[in-house]
Computed example of a mutant assay.
Amino acid sequence: MTRGAWTPGSGPLRVGVVGCGNIVEQYLQTLPRLPDVRLVAAADLDRSRAEAVAARVDGARALTVDELIADPDVDLVLNLTIPAAHDAIALAAIRAGKHVHGEKPLAAVTSAARAVLDAAAEAGLVASCAPDTVLGTGTQTARAAIDEGLIGRPIAATAVMLTPGHERWHPNPDFYYQPGGGPLFDMGPYYISALVTLLGPVVSVVGAASSLRTERTIGSGSRAGEVIPVDVDTHVTGVLVHESGALSTLVMSFDAVATRSSSIEIHGTAGSMIVPDPNHFAGDVEVNVLDGDGWQTLPPSGGYVDAGRGIALQDFVATGAAPRASGALAFHVLDVMESFIRAAHEGRAIEVASTCDRPAPVPLTELD
């Protein structure tokens, strides 16, 4: 580890958050409940946002971005900036001797993400990444059931997310329609991270994509009525081929109205399973086994109980700076998504160059 960086047993993990936009609110609901994590600083290009966050947390200070990254009292930089800035902030934090945990994706493109992972490895630091929803009781109870053989050998999965678009509710939705955004890069990490956690890494993909509108209209906030350009695919569908042989069908859209359920379905040789929405931490896992009594709800058997965004930081401490929401997993997910878009545009199957270990399961864990 870089001199001065947090190491196991050195006390609470002191976190400084960079980027105090909409998503920070969800982290602020979780971080105070984590027994081994302390939020000590906040920074944003809009100073008032950083001050608002700091005012809500005892002992936290509002700083500039440069001040926070250089601050010796910050062990880990929580990077909640827009995707286009993820790698720049992560690299600056690593150069300053900080661990870094970022919102998804790890970077806008794999070349930038690789630079982050290489810099962290060279410095002896950890670069981890959201989504950490896979650490909750929903996905982890499903993982435990699969590992126990409850549905036999998994052979197929379906994962569907349909929404008319985030511009309807987000006051500044521009980045959702710029490179690094779109339904696949925005919501795909939740679904693909869950699928890799449940079924293992992906070796190849086939896909198709469309973008039927070139503009979107902001529906809320001070910019309501403003028209923004669309520079990404807004409906993406295709198949992931897992190393295990399982096939996952994926549909991600900002063009459709709704789907009745955003859950994942896993089908095996001995039964089928409904996994709750991977954008959430909890939810019922249901199974229907061959020659059984129909759909049954499983009691929680894995994952962090009552988890929320930021639970990966507690997992960082609990695993001795080897978090399950690892940079390697995030890089593989980003690589899968890039390969997916390439497959869609080239009209052929694309091999996924990267791989990762299937993350270790999380035992059923109550936050103290």
Rank of each mutant, 00 (worst) to 15 (best):
T81L: 03
P189H: 01
P229M: 01
A85I: 10
G181I: 06
V37E: 09
A55P: 04
S193I: 01
N22E: 14
D174H: 14
R348F: 10
A123H: 02
L117M: 12
G245F: 02
R324V: 06
T197R: 10
D118S: 08
A353R: 15
T269W: 13
S326R: 04
H267Y: 08
I82W: 03
K98F: 08
V40W: 08
P361A: 00
G268F: 06
R49P: 06
A360N: 07
A282V: 01
D36Y: 05
I23Y: 11
P105E: 02
T2H: 13
M273A: 02
V77G: 09
G302Y: 00
R49N: 08
E51D: 12
P105T: 15
D284M: 04
A258C: 11
A85R: 13
G19R: 13
A246Q: 01
A43D: 09
V202P: 06
L329M: 13
H267I: 02
V53N: 10
Q29Y: 05
L298C: 12
P12R: 15
D75M: 12
V285Q: 01
T163W: 01
L334K: 12
A62Q: 06
D291Y: 08
A307V: 10
E67V: 13
D186S: 15
G152W: 04
R61T: 10
G21R: 11
L162P: 03
G149L: 09
Y177S: 00
A328R: 14
A121K: 11
L162V: 12
A130F: 07
R3T: 15
D315P: 09
G136N: 12
G207E: 05
T237M: 11
A318D: 15
G327H: 02
F316I: 06
D118W: 05
A322E: 13
I23W: 08
H101Y: 15
I341V: 13
R168W: 08
R143F: 10
E103H: 14
A258K: 11
R223Y: 02
A54N: 12
A194M: 11
T297R: 15
G21N: 09
A321C: 07
A312N: 14
R153P: 00
D284Q: 15
E226I: 01
T158M: 03
E122I: 08
P359Y: 13
W169D: 07
A343R: 12
P359R: 12
L45K: 03
G283I: 09
A60M: 03
D36W: 13
P173Q: 08
V100F: 10
G225F: 13
G238Y: 01
A349F: 00
Y27D: 05
I350G: 04
S193Y: 07
P8M: 14
T237F: 06
R260H: 11
G200I: 09
H235Y: 14
G303K: 00
V24N: 04
L329G: 07
L247C: 09
D315A: 01
R342I: 06
F316G: 00
T237Y: 08
G292L: 04
N79L: 07
G180A: 04
G16D: 14
R153K: 10
H280I: 01
A159H: 04
D87F: 08
G327M: 05
S193D: 06
K98G: 01
G149S: 13
A328W: 05
S48C: 13
